[in-house]
Write a protein that binds this DNA or RNA. Sequence first.
DNA 1: ACTACCTGTAATATTTATCTAACAGGTGCA
DNA 2: TGCACCTGTTAGATAAATATTACAGGTAGT
Lengths: 105, 105
Amino acid sequence: MVNMDAAELSGKLAAIASPQRMRIIALLSGETLYVSELARRMEMSRALLYMHLTKLEEAGFVAGHLELSDDGKAMKFFEVLPFTLTVNAKTLVKAVAAHTESETI
Amino acid sequence: MVNMDAAELSGKLAAIASPQRMRIIALLSGETLYVSELARRMEMSRALLYMHLTKLEEAGFVAGHLELSDDGKAMKFFEVLPFTLTVNAKTLVKAVAAHTESETI
DNA sequence: ACTACCTGTAATATTTATCTAACAGGTGCA
DNA sequence: TGCACCTGTTAGATAAATATTACAGGTAGT
C-alpha cells in the first residue's frame, strides 16, 4: 500500500471524489449504519446507494457485514475503515512510474 | 484552503483522479513544457490535452503562461504548482459539514 | 506560395458514471 | 393473509466525462 500504481491510486481517488460518497463516509464515520437506514438519511434509493457502497468497498474505504437482528431480520451494516490518502507531485510521479514499469516489463 | 467544502474538495479529487491527468502532472513535474510538446509526449491530441489542462488549472494543480520564443512563436508553457492533498475520514467530515452549512445558512 | 511549426476553440461522437423503476426473496407480527 | 420492515439484483434512462474531427489564426524559413 506504500507504493500504489497509477491505476490503484486513480481508483481510490475516483471513489472518494464523489460528493455523494463523501457524504456517505461522513455519515458512517462515527456510527455504523445498515443500508436501509443509511439510504433514508441520504435520501437516496437503496439501489443507488448499493452502487456507491460497492465502489467505496472496492476502493477499501468501507466494509460491510451481515448481522442478524434480534427479530431475525438480516441487516447489512457498513463501517468506515481507517485510511489516510496523501497526494502531491512526488506521490504522482511514483505512482505513474510504478504503472509504466508494470506495463512495460 | 485549510477548510475546503465538499464541492471544492470533490473538484480537486476528481481533477487529480484521472490516470491521464496524473501522467500530465508527472511529466510536468520536473520540467515545464509547452502544450504541443506535452501533447507529443502524451501521444494525445492538443484538443483533448487542453481539456485536461483546463481541469487541472481550474483545480489549481498547474498554471499556464504564454511565452514568445526567439523566433516569434507564441508558446504556452505549463508548470506544476506545489500542492499536497490529504484525505481521511476526519477531513471528509469537516468538508461535508462546511458544505451543508453554506447550503443551509 | 508552400511547408512546418505554434495557439485556440467549436461541434460532434463515444464511452462512463449516475440514477430510476421494477422485480424476487426473506422475517415477524396483527 | 396482509402489512411493515429488511436484503439484493437487473434492465433501462439520463447525465456527464472523455475523446475525435475539423476548423481559424499566427510566425518563420525555403
